[in-house]
């Protein structure tokens, strides 16, 4: 609550890993009781994984924010200096994005033609596309975007 530190987000990631592991153990326990692996997640597993997902997102977002915005803001402007490495990383990511998009379309066509839906692969590819987009914007924000920190009066006329 004091500053934008990376400690709480890191602990959130550790806790998220713990919750996902607890959900896995719950699944093992249920499988032992039933004598077979059930086709569905239990209520407890969904609850653990939902909180695990929130903490995972919170942890990642917190670390991204720490990387992009720092621990403390200081009023002023900062203009990035041109650099080759981020451009190269951007080009590689764009190529990866194109390849993943093409593969995703192929997956959809395959599912439509055969009726077979490999959901884990569809989710993985679409999710990866989104993560690459996030990485591209992250590179832009870190290495190309104008950095500005401002102060504002407490009283403003917006929205009323």
């Amino acid at each position: 609550m004091y500053r934008n530190d990376p400690i709480l987000p890191t602990f959130a990631l550790i806790l998220a890993a713990g919750l996902f592991y607890a959900a896995y153990l719950d699944g093992q326990h249920i499988a032992r009781l039933l004598g077979h692996v059930p086709e569905k997640l239990s209520v407890g597993q969904i609850g653990l994984m939902a909180f695990g997902a929130v903490l995972l997102l919170y942890g990642l977002m917190g670390l991204v924010s720490y990387w992009l915005e720092g621990m403390e803001l200081r009023p002023g402007r900062h203009f990035p200096t041109p650099s080759t490495a981020p451009v190269a990383a951007g080009v590689i990511l764009v190529l990866l994005l194109t390849a993943l998009s093409g593969f995703f379309v192929r997956l959809l066509v395959y599912a439509a033609q055969t009726g077979h839906n490999p959901t884990w692969l569809q989710g993985l590819i679409f999710g990866s596309i989104s993560l690459v987009v996030a990485a591209l914007f992250g590179i832009y924000r870190r290495f190309f975007g104008r950095e500005e920190v401002i102060t504002e009066e407490e009283k403003s006329e917006f929205p009323w």
């Binding site: 997902a53 995972l56 997102l57 990642l60 977002m61 991204v64 924010s65 992009l68 915005e69 803001l73 009023p75 989710g123 993985l124 679409f126 999710g127 990866s128 596309i129 989104s130 993560l131 987009v133 996030a134 914007f137 992250g138 832009y140 924000r141 975007g145 104008r146 950095e147 500005e148 920190v149 401002i150 102060t151 504002e152 009066e153 407490e154």
Partner: peptide, 28 residues
């Protein structure tokens, strides 16, 4: 005073990054 980054462009770019992160992780 209120200390922060301007809504445009910094906060908006940040929101795009975080939304893409959300969609990516949750779709997987």
């Amino acid at each position: 005073k209120i200390l922060g980054v301007p809504m445009y462009p910094q906060q908006m770019v940040m929101m795009v990054i975080l939304f893409a992160l959300y969609v990516g992780i949750m779709t997987i």
